[in-house]
């Protein structure tokens, strides 16, 4: 019985293969097998959002997704936002609005915010707050994160 599977999927725009344990989470695959450490472990049970990634256009907690389920899918992590012009504006907004303190929740927050804006380009503050409800931050009190996201939304233009 093999406890490992070979999977093939698109990660940040690049097709790749990986050999993963059947019980492994996508989070562990990204961090330990592939070596991308931008996606963070915060709780391992889908409560904090630090490990948020986007799979086939849906944001989800990578700690709750089996790595084998990435097979055939399109996965984007915080590293993948580096080649996304809209994400550049979002990152600059996080910096300029003081949305980053210890920064540990920030990659997950960035992923969720970028996904939120892709779905709701005209999101107002209340929509943004609901949109990042699943992402915990212990430093900022969320206000500057909401301000940062709102500043790149269409309502700000």
């Amino acid at each position: 019985m093999s406890l490992k599977h070979d999977i093939e999927f698109t990660l940040n725009g690049v097709k790749r293969r990986a050999t993963v344990g059947v019980g492994m989470t996508t989070l562990d695959m990204l961090r330990d097998v592939i070596g991308l450490s931008g996606t963070k472990y915060g709780c391992g049970e889908g409560e904090c959002g630090a490990c948020t990634i986007v799979v086939d256009g849906a944001s989800l907690n990578s700690c709750l997704m089996f790595a084998v389920d990435c097979h055939g899918r399109n996965v984007t992590t915080i590293e993948g936002l580096a080649s996304d012009a809209k994400a550049d504006a979002l990152r600059d907004a996080f910096v300029l609005h003081g949305a980053v303190q210890c920064g540990f929740c920030t990659p997950g927050m960035m992923m969720q915010a970028s996904h939120l804006l892709a779905c709701h380009p005209d999101a107002d503050a209340d929509t943004i707050k609901r949109g990042i409800e699943g992402n915990l931050c212990r430093c900022t009190g969320y206000k500057k994160i909401v301000d940062a996201i709102a500043s790149v939304g269409e309502t700000a233009k």
Partner: peptide, 11 residues
């Protein structure tokens, strides 16, 4: 802006 913010916001 915090000097370490760009790195942190890029993961």
């Amino acid at each position: 802006p915090k000097m370490d913010a760009p790195e942190k916001a890029s993961g």
